[in-house]
């Protein structure tokens, strides 16, 4: 009664002497159909539009100034020179400082690392408390926090200046670290709260029955299980804080300026002759850290920005 045997009486004989096309197998699809031309054509044009600025940036940074003055921004360099990069990194001037972007780079590192660690530490514990140890009023504070994420920063800038001045941190890197931790809190707390809420409640209950307390459960059960969300949070914070301009310009002094602020000052300074190749090298250098994070993290970056998009 096996199927393969019973219905063998198909029309193989008729199929052999076909005179019209007898469709069989996969529907023939031409690679060059009108649909594919439209589809891939559009995608390639759009891809070119998105890649063009990056290409121009790189090409310009590798040319000498005479070549830039004579040539065309899209043409590849006739003579590759790395001098603009060296100059951008170590001798470009902002105001009185002439030690290049390296100062801003190290400032940004000294801002980003502690800000990322502090903001994630606070927000993860916070999210955990909100998800698993709900106390009266917790949700009210949380809603205020989330609504606060939509308030334009401009409204809160000045009160924070006063607070920082009172505690003696205005203009210092530590002050900026605190500011970043405050403004990272809404989105990170939301991220962690949702993640911890999605973990099985039984796990938490079992640990409590076993006698583990607030910190015991967090450190020994929740943390080891939440590596992915920490990676997402790190990606979100590293790119966000590195790219910040407004807080840097408000809360730091020229010698503690982060990289973005220093870059803007180098490129948009009105003194001296414009060195476009140095400017573009400096621009790439500033964009390099988030770009590397982006290309390494791949899909996780998408998850991170989807979660962090609210931050705007």
């Amino acid at each position: 009664m096996n199927m393969a045997n019973t219905t063998a009486q198909t029309s193989t004989a008729a199929g052999a002497r076909q005179d019209i096309i007898d469709p069989c197998g996969p529907k023939p699809r031409r690679m060059i159909s009108r649909r594919n031309i439209f589809l891939y054509g559009t995608l390639f044009v759009m891809a070119a539009y998105y890649l063009l600025p990056l290409y121009v940036m790189v090409v310009t940074s590798l040319k000498g100034m005479p070549e830039i003055r004579l040539g065309n921004i899209f043409s590849p360099p006739l003579e590759i020179t790395f001098e603009p990069w060296v100059k951008a990194w170590s001798t470009a001037c902002t105001g009185l400082n002439c030690d290049g972007l390296s100062r801003g780079f190290w400032n940004s590192v000294r801002i980003t690392v502690p800000s990322v660690l502090l903001s994630i530490a606070i927000a993860s514990v916070n999210g955990y408390a909100l998800a698993n140890w709900r106390f009266k009023g917790a949700d009210t504070f949380f809603i205020i926090l989330i609504v606060g994420a939509f308030i334009p920063y401009q409204v809160m800038i000045y009160p924070i200046v006063i607070i920082l001045r009172e505690i003696g941190l205005y203009g210092s890197l530590s002050g900026l670290v605190i500011v970043h931790s405050i403004f990272g809190m809404p989105i990170l707390t939301l991220l962690f709260r949702n993640y911890f809420s999605s973990m099985p409640e039984e796990l938490f209950r079992a640990a409590r029955v076993d006698g583990a307390g607030f910190w015991g459960i967090f450190l020994r059960i929740m943390l080891p299980m939440s590596l992915p969300i920490f990676v997402v949070a790190i990606i979100l914070q590293v790119t966000g804080i590195w790219n910040d301009f407004l807080f840097g310009v408000v809360y730091t002094r020229p010698d503690t300026y982060p990289m973005t602020v220093q870059l803007n000052n180098i490129v948009n300074s009105v003194q001296g002759v414009k060195e476009y190749n140095v400017n573009m090298a400096a621009t790439i250098l500033t964009g390099l850290v988030p770009l590397i994070v982006y290309f390494i993290s791949g899909k996780l970056f998408v998850r991170g920005i989807a979660a962090g998009a609210v931050k705007g």
């Binding site: 007898d22 069989c24 197998g25």
Partner: peptide
């Protein structure tokens, strides 16, 4: 809804 590989 699916393209087949062989047959009719």
């Amino acid at each position: 809804l699916l393209d087949i590989s062989e047959g009719r």
